[in-house]
Design a protein around this nucleic acid. Structure first.
Lengths: 107, 107
DNA sequence: CGCTAATATCGACCTATGTCGATGCAGCAT
DNA sequence: ATGCTGCATCGACATAGGTCGATATTAGCG
């Protein structure tokens, strides 16, 4: 039986990158990240709750996913909790993309 | 009632970017994209089927999702179907990332 | 100490998704 | 035509994920 093209076996685990992209695969989480990036500063949870068409538990849920993906960090100050983009968020995303596309995107 | 930080309302639809990231949120699909990118050429479906720990229908399912995200294109040649990365795949991913992070990543 | 406010967690619900076996379909060969 | 091969689609299943109401937790206040 003939073949179509020469195979080349590599067994790489893309789970890490997948978790990153999965964290970015929801429109509301993207909105959160975009707000944080645009603000270039920390944002209080109550701001997300008031600006997103979601109830407070749902906002908290999305923030947790972003937290567990290490894309954001939070800090409690008094009654409020403030979130900010992780300092290496952009670098980790760019690294994941270039790891998949095997091309250097970040400078 | 006092407030924590000044709000700024924007109602942007991140659904398009979310679809892109969702297509990239599975390890096996990442493996497919990585194989295609590394090959820098078209790859026959039978190659994915033989190199991934998935059955043929599952491979077909993942290829369809990548197709619908316009990340790959396919072309039937005889009995075999060959997939390749869309020419603008990298650009669209980079554009989605920078759209969210409001920073220029691509050169 | 109670009371209120801001977040997080829990439980339930429904939908989406990854996976596979079975089947369908297109293309080649005999 | 018959059969075979590569791939897509379908149906079913189990699990994951988004959403919300209810409840818990933490912090400030009187």
């Amino acid at each position: 039986m003939q073949h179509c093209c020469p195979p080349d076996g590599r067994e790489v685990d893309r789970a890490g990158e997948a978790v990153l992209f999965k964290a970015l695969s929801d429109p509301h989480r993207l909105a959160i990240v975009a707000m944080l990036s645009a603000a270039a500063d920390e944002i209080c949870v109550c701001n997300f709750t008031s600006e997103l068409p979601l109830n407070q538990p749902t906002v908290s849920h999305h923030l947790r996913i972003l937290r567990e993906a290490a894309l954001v960090t939070c800090e409690r100050r008094g009654t409020w909790v403030y979130y900010r983009l992780s300092s290496d968020a952009g670098a980790r995303i760019a690294s994941a993309v270039s790891s998949i596309l095997s091309e250097a995107i970040a400078a």
